[in-house]
Amino acid sequence: MAEFTQSYEVFEHTADVGIHAYGRTLEELFAAAALGMESLMIAPEQLRVETSREVIVEEQNLLALLIAWLNELVFLFDTEFLLFREVEILELSEQRLRARVGGEPYDAERHELSSAIKAVTWHEASITSVDGGYRARVIFDI
């Protein structure tokens, strides 16, 4: 499973916040985007891996798949208060993603929640090929 590394960078965007995620492969890119988003909510070193979930998302194209993937992780936080520090992409195509994520439920006594993400937006969202891999730009509504 991929763990948090500096495979993403945060940038400010009006009342929202965004990330640029990087990966040599699309699998690495999708993992980095998820871990970067999670880092906006909580410092990864505060999290243990106590539970895992399999996540399956299907969409019409790669960018829609990335947005749906990240929104599914937001949904898991909203419904089960789950925060993740590990991501393993098990299957990825242009229209389908299957992944395993590991983390733990939010605990107000142990975790300092930086901000809650309401949604992943389409505003300026992109996936581009760059030297040595891929780059994604994603903006979050906080």
Rank of each mutant, 00 (worst) to 15 (best):
I56Q: 15
A33Y: 13
M41G: 08
L65A: 07
S52Q: 14
I19P: 08
H13W: 11
L35W: 10
L63T: 04
T51P: 06
L90W: 02
L90G: 02
S7Y: 07
T79R: 11
V74Y: 10
E38Y: 14
Y22D: 00
L92H: 00
G36S: 11
F11R: 02
Q46S: 03
E27W: 01
G23T: 01
L40I: 08
V57Q: 13
F81W: 07
V49K: 10
V49S: 09
S52C: 11
E27F: 01
P44C: 06
E91T: 02
V87E: 00
E94H: 11
E88A: 12
V57T: 05
A43N: 13
W69C: 09
E38S: 15
F84T: 04
E45G: 00
A21Q: 10
E54V: 15
L92K: 03
T79L: 10
R48D: 09
P44I: 07
A64E: 13
E86Y: 05
A43F: 13
V74Q: 01
Q6P: 09
A21M: 09
E91N: 01
A34F: 09
W69Q: 04
L47Y: 07
A34S: 15
Q60Y: 05
I56P: 01
L70N: 05
L92T: 00
E91Y: 11
V49H: 00
E59G: 11
I56N: 10
L73F: 12
E94P: 11
R53E: 15
F30C: 04
E12T: 10
E50L: 14
F81Y: 08
L62G: 06
A33M: 05
E86T: 14
E50F: 06
R48G: 05
F75M: 08
V74M: 08
R85A: 10
V17Y: 08
L73Y: 12
E88R: 14
Y22C: 01
E12D: 14
L70R: 09
E88K: 13
E27D: 05
S39Y: 13
E94D: 14
W69N: 07
E45W: 06
L70Q: 13
L40C: 06
V17A: 02
R96H: 09
V10S: 08
I19G: 04
R48Q: 12
L40M: 05
E72T: 13
E28S: 05
H13P: 04
G23F: 06
A34M: 12
V17F: 09
E12Y: 07
L70P: 10
V17S: 03
L62T: 12
A31N: 01
E54N: 11
V17K: 11
R48P: 02
E80M: 07
L90V: 07
L29E: 00
L40T: 01
L90R: 13
E80G: 00
E58M: 07
Q60V: 09
A68Q: 06
T51V: 12
Q60D: 11
L29T: 06
V49I: 13
L26E: 03
E45K: 09
A43M: 13
M37L: 14
E59R: 15
F84W: 12
L29P: 03
E28C: 03
Y22N: 00
V49W: 06
